[in-house]
């Protein structure tokens, strides 16, 4: 299939591993799904310490279930990426550990306090879910199938995040103030989750033309702001003055881009932010610490099937 045919046919769940797809499509899909998978893993690592920090047994159980879900999403997505035939899971995990693998901007920032957890679990997950819901219609069928399961589980994450936010914002005055402070720190990062406006995004055009991406950054950002600004206000959070957000007559939002720190955003995109190094090193250490598990699995598989083709833990 040539790229013109891909563009002509591009529709929801149109292409599967048995289609003969051009390199350009496979590369774009691999880049997108690998980024998504990496983000699931890095998000899980960011939240993991809060299993221990959780203020109650209920929260502890829910946080640990959520982290388990996110790691599971990462695994589903590495499978969907592997099925494009360009990279193995092993290669992608190595790239993540050695700092080549890219992931969501919000997961490059360290999280220090419990009051920050709803910033990820409600707002960032809400933003991610908005995007993921549209990806159920992506053209790479294994990716869409992964999204079915991810979205099924994600509703719990967002609602649990909202429960934490509600609890904090109806708590002591001190808790409310600390939550507002955390919100002010995280809000610009959350807005930047959707990247710069469409015309500045490098990969956007091609990914939409071949049906991988179903909705542009601007539309997604607007849909997110429409749903989550009222929620933030409902819980008594004050939306920071900057970045300035203008509501147009047609219900869309316009974010004043120069109010956001794009140097920081693009430093993060290169994995070069202080937090990037911290998070990536943490993941690398975890990867090395369980090296022996992968080896045992591979040895077992080679013994069982007499094959040198090691796959179980790849």
């Amino acid at each position: 299939m040539d790229i013109e045919e891909v563009k002509r046919r591009a529709g929801p769940r149109e292409f599967s591993p048995k289609d003969d797809l051009p390199e350009e499509y496979r590369k774009a899909a691999t880049r997108m799904i690998q980024f998504h998978a990496n983000s699931e893993i890095m998000g899980a690592y960011l939240e993991r310490p809060f299993i221990r920090e959780a203020p109650s047994l209920d929260r502890k159980l829910a946080c640990s279930a959520k982290v388990q879900d996110e790691i599971g999403h990462g695994q589903l997505l590495y499978r969907a990426a592997e099925s494009l035939g360009l990279k193995t899971r092993d290669e992608m995990l190595d790239e993540l550990a050695n700092g080549e693998g890219k992931f969501l901007n919000c997961f490059h920032y360290p999280m220090e306090s419990w009051v920050e957890t709803p910033m990820i679990a409600f707002f960032v997950d809400g933003a991610a879910m908005r995007r993921q819901a549209t990806l159920k219609r992506t053209s790479w069928e294994p990716y869409a199938h992964a999204m079915d399961k991810v979205c099924f589980e994600e509703g719990f994450h967002v609602k649990h995040g909202e429960a934490i936010l509600h609890e904090l914002m109806t708590g002591s005055k001190k808790e409310q103030e600390m939550t507002q402070e955390a919100f002010e720190v995280w809000w610009p990062r959350i807005i930047q989750f959707f990247g710069p406006t469409n015309d500045k995004s490098t990969h956007h055009g091609f990914a939409s033309e071949v049906g991988l991406k179903q909705m542009g950054n601007d539309e997604l950002r607007t849909a997110f702001l429409n749903a989550y600004i009222p929620k933030a206000e409902k819980y008594g959070l004050e939306i920071p003055d900057e970045p300035r957000i203008r509501k147009n007559d047609d219900g869309t939002y316009e974010v004043v881009e120069e109010d956001l720190d794009w140097d920081e955003f693009f430093t993060i995109a290169k994995n070069d932010y202080d937090g990037s190094h911290q998070q990536i090193n943490g993941r690398q250490k975890a990867q090395e610490a369980v090296d022996w598990v992968r080896e045992v699995l591979d040895e077992h598989e080679a013994r069982e099937f007499g094959s040198t083709q090691q796959q179980a833990a790849d």
């Binding site: 829910a62 279930a65 908005r130 509703g155 609602k159």
Partner: peptide, 25 residues
């Protein structure tokens, strides 16, 4: 394991996709 289910958290869904996920669950 009710803590794993969206239906446990009694909030009006923030967005349609959250509602859909809750219904599926």
């Amino acid at each position: 394991k009710s803590y794993r289910w969206a239906v446990t958290y009694d909030f009006e869904a923030a967005a349609s996709e959250v509602e859909e996920s809750t219904d599926e669950q």
